[in-house]
Design a binder for these strands. Structure first.
Lengths: 128, 128
DNA sequence: TTCGTATTTCGTCGATTGACGAAATAGGAG
DNA sequence: CTCCTATTTCGTCAATCGACGAAATACGAA
């Protein structure tokens, strides 16, 4: 996790297992790969990160130290949460030295949104 | 993570930190709490679990051993992924001894869907 | 230049995750 | 009853996460 990835990407989820070897237009959400979707979900999977997102959304202007204040976590911890959100593309940091001004990028979550939408359209299953 | 929780719940994310102390109708997604949303996101945060969901969605009838075949992971590992999805309420297992027939519950992800939708409506930020 | 503020990087530590195989559980088939 | 199939639970192990403080970085202000 070092690049600011935004679209495709394949096979690198901790311990190697042959999970994602057949994703060609296979079922739902064609063309989106599990690894990238999982990465966005993981970025959203911690309460502190959700709180960061809401803090950013609730302000016209949101700089890093505002977030540190709001969370009540150490600046370094907050910075790392922000890094995860940035790597997933969910938030973007505009540098305004010596500060960073954060905002949410709606485009980054759109593929994920579509995926979740498709889940919410699931129809009831039959029994065998 | 031992209870089949489905609605509220507060403050229990590993090492205690005062993160979620001010969620009353504060910004976006009023009334939904970060911890529960994070839990759903976490359930979706692993490629194998996304694949399980798609496997379930792509079949009329989906029993556990189908999923084990499809994933290529050990049955025990698959079972634990299924447990996480069940605890988040995303999939439901209907017991048809000695099998279990799985389906996706659209209602469980609806609050999460609404949250993600609200993120995708974010408007661009100003600079200070 | 020196100091102060904002932020990131690094090292450490305990907790959690994700994988596996072995064993337990439970109904159905023979 | 005994064996088979499907599934879950348990114990273990390596890897990742999340938190912290200390130190590095970088600009603006004094």
């Amino acid at each position: 996790m070092t690049a600011p990835l935004t679209q495709p990407l394949a096979g690198d989820h901790a311990a190697g297992a042959p999970i994602d070897d057949a994703p060609p237009g296979d079922a739902i959400a064609p063309g989106v790969d599990h690894v990238q979707l999982a990465k966005v979900a993981k970025a959203l999977s911690h309460p502190a990160r959700l709180k960061i997102i809401e803090t950013v959304l609730s302000r016209d202007v949101c700089i890093g130290c505002d977030i540190v204040d709001e969370l009540g976590l150490a600046a370094s911890t907050t910075s790392e949460h922000l890094k995860i959100l940035k790597e997933a593309g969910i938030v973007v940091g505009e540098i305004v030295r010596p500060r960073v001004c954060y905002s949410v990028d709606p485009d980054a979550i759109r593929p994920f949104l579509q995926y979740v939408e498709s889940l919410s359209n699931a129809k009831p299953a039959k029994l065998p």
